[in-house]
Design a protein around this nucleic acid. Structure first.
Ligand SMILES: [Mn+2]
Ligand SMILES: [Mn+2]
Ligand SMILES: [Zn+2]
Ligand SMILES: [Zn+2]
Lengths: 144, 144
DNA sequence: TTTTTATTTGCAACATTGTTGCAAAATTAC
DNA sequence: GTAATTTTGCAACAATGTTGCAAATAAAAA
């Protein structure tokens, strides 16, 4: 994972590569993503960072990160929206998140199973497939 | 699909089977589900039915239908929650919605592909799988 | 480094969405 | 039919998300 210094450097590089200004808010939010081992939803930022930045700023920052391909969304069956950092192959115009997501029914954590590919799916005639989202519910490694 | 009379009769039977009182709201909401060819979200009921019933009643009705296994949720990457009617094999305690969902990027409709089974997935060691949700994004039959 | 320009942030105000308690209305049981 | 039970609508509130705009900050230019 690296020292705090290393993480900060990695984050700065990431923002620079995405042609984004390096601001306290952006660095702090990326830090939270990198320290967390699961996906985060909006309310997590207020819990984890207290009121160190405005609610509106968090919404706008997440939106920016999405557009730049720094994070991706994970589907849920409730009203929350979950986000996780993308692997390095993702770019602004092309996401490569062809992995499975796992939601633990015990601890609630949502994680990216980066090594687990989404299986191929045979759709009925007439449907064009652009991308496939897979979310597995169950009990995670640490809860078992 | 059947005449209005037949639909009403089918709905009454469904409610009776689930041991639910037959009320105007419940019948109307089930009618909307059966007439729609896609999943519905909360705001659809207000659009489709105007203000013929209260917002709170819709929330409570959908909650009841979920608990009784009459409808199921479909995961989304936004804050909306989408619902569709379950096939008859679903019961209060055991859902059998092992089918794929399709979200059309053109018309926005979400549909159940009842004939398309969810593929088997090989999880990393240590994870217990309870159920798998698959949502395919693309262009649907009618939009193509 | 200092100044200029462009971007980001925080606040206020508002819109939308979801929840709860409770009395009135409707449905079911008798 | 009446009584018991359940459901509904309303009001009030909580939580979540959006927008405009001025102040603060960061990047670019001098
Ligand atoms: Mn992921
Ligand atoms: Mn379905
Ligand atoms: Zn867990
Ligand atoms: Zn379509």
């Amino acid at each position: 994972m690296g020292t705090k210094q290393q993480i900060t450097e990695r984050i700065s590089a990431l923002l620079r590569d995405s042609k984004l200004s390096i601001t306290d808010t952006r660095v702090k939010i990326l830090e939270l993503f990198m320290r967390s081992n699961g996906a985060l939803e909006h309310s997590d930022f207020e819990k984890l960072a207290g009121k160190s930045f405005d609610r509106v700023t968090v919404y706008r920052t997440l939106q920016t990160f999405l557009e730049k391909g720094i994070i991706h969304k994970i589907p849920t069956t409730d009203t929350s929206v979950r986000y996780a950092v993308c692997k390095s192959e993702c770019t602004e115009h092309h996401h490569h998140d062809h992995h499975v997501h796992f939601k633990c029914e015990n601890c609630g954590a949502t994680t990216c199973l980066d090594e687990t590919d989404v299986p191929s799916i045979q759709l009925p005639k007439g449907y064009a497939m652009h991308n496939v989202e897979v979310v597995v519910n169950g009990v995670c490694k640490s809860c078992k």
